[in-house]
Design a protein around this nucleic acid. Structure first.
Lengths: 257, 257
DNA sequence: CCCAATTTGTTCGTATGTATC
DNA sequence: AGATACATACGAACAAATTGG
């Protein structure tokens, strides 16, 4: 049995934050201190009430704070309670999206990063992808090899072609690189959902982009890291041009999970 | 006067999330819908209780959720209440840090990104920095021009030299690039605080890094974008080598604001 | 400095919902 | 089905903080 702080707990003295916030921070620190892992159970409401010497409502607000940050989940019933939870990628993405809701990001901003990060990703993945994934990538490309006939279809093709990059990002062993590229791709996908871009379509650039993806898969398959990097660089240049002129402010809502 | 959803509110039917969560999402959506800006006042507790037809505790939990995400702040007293709040960089950093607490990032992971992003940042800032900032950068360098005598001093020099990059990041007009570099720099700074790295010190590499920073400031001053990029690339290579062999898992606690 | 009004913050008792055995 | 163990929600009362007179 492990002891939470102390009977009448010592929260950070010199209190400025609200009590629920202090409790949440205390629990966070305690989790780290005890080295609790995802899935480990936290003390129940009743126990926390006793340990912290606070009312149920206060404790519950603290739990909501931790839950909102994605750090715990809660279940009712016997054997229920609060459990340490690994912050999910979706949650992290939504939370970070809230930040950029207030910063006016442009498409150019995102591409400034994509232009250097996507080639780096491609180079690092050359020769490391499974056959099944390479086939999945090719299947993805096939879904937009025919010109779109309707505007909806075109929009969906665009989202699908972005999914190509999300698939790649998921393969990186670098969690930071993986998360970031996925994040940017989602931002761009959301854009295509909320706005009707790409009219009139630039068919030439579009087909060129598809060609790059095909060549990229080949380079990845044979493990040619240098070629993969170069192809992706060219691809990003094309994609950026395809997006150009769509500079308007980007996001109109909070990102949902 | 603007109306919140409806008397007996229509939360997302087919409910799986907790009620406070639903309320929080409803308010979030309402804020976006109404185009509320940072600083705008939200309805008070009493009004929300009435509008949503829920108990005080439930509403309060919802507010704590929004507060935890950094989207609102709350004040007591007359004229008080909850106000839309721009998610701060610190908050976003802490929330994203929670995600990576569960992903085992290595120093190499961070440098894989820094190696391409820092040069991009440097190139984009060439010729665009004010004299006062250039002087601040030089003053920063001066703070570690003399070899450290104690281990604490050495650690502080390291953090200070990372601050050089945070200063640069803050100058970028690209909020995504700016945030990311700042985030990485903080991760590395936290590392130097929690662990004693850099022993034994590699004085040669260290002084070489300082030299790069000096030359970089010059390139930035005269607006030589190409040189700035190249110098930063070399600098990153040096820094990475300086960090090498320190591969151990990184973060031991949650990032605090 | 005190008092009153306003608004959030906290407590407690009770009842309801839900999952497990 | 019933008992148990847990979170969830409600409502009323009271406490604390802030502002203005």
């Amino acid at each position: 049995m492990i002891s939470l702080p102390r009977a009448t707990i010592r929260l950070k003295t010199e209190t400025k934050a609200s009590r629920p916030m202090q409790v949440a921070d205390a629990i966070k620190g305690w989790v780290v201190e005890q080295g609790l892992q995802a899935g480990d159970r936290l003390p129940g409401e009743a126990e926390l009430i006793e340990r912290f010497g606070m009312a149920k409502g206060t404790i519950r607000e603290a739990m909501r704070i931790l839950e909102a940050q994605g750090l715990i989940t809660t279940r009712t019933g016997p054997g229920g309670g609060s459990f340490v939870h690994e912050v999910s990628r979706q949650r992290a993405r939504a939370l970070l999206g809230n930040y950029f809701y207030f910063q006016h990001l442009t498409i150019a901003d995102i591409y400034q990063l994509r232009r250097v990060l996507e080639p780096e990703l491609a180079a690092s993945l050359a020769g490391k992808l499974s056959d099944s994934l390479l086939q999945e990538l090719e299947a993805n490309i096939a879904r937009y090899s025919q010109p779109a006939s309707t505007l909806d279809e075109e929009r969906e093709q665009h989202v699908t072609s972005l999914r190509f990059h999300a698939l790649l990002a998921a393969q990186s062993e670098n969690a930071l690189l993986s998360f970031l590229i996925d994040f940017m791709v989602r931002m761009l996908s959301d854009l295509t959902v909320y706005r009707k871009l790409y009219s009139p379509p630039n068919l030439e650039l579009w087909s060129k982009g598809r060609g790059y993806q095909e060549r990229l898969v080949q380079a990845l398959r044979v493990g040619d890291s240098h070629a993969a990097r170069q192809i992706m660089e060219a691809h990003m240049n094309t994609a950026q041009r395809l997006m150009e002129g769509q500079e308007a402010a980007m996001l109109r809502g909070f990102i949902s999970e």
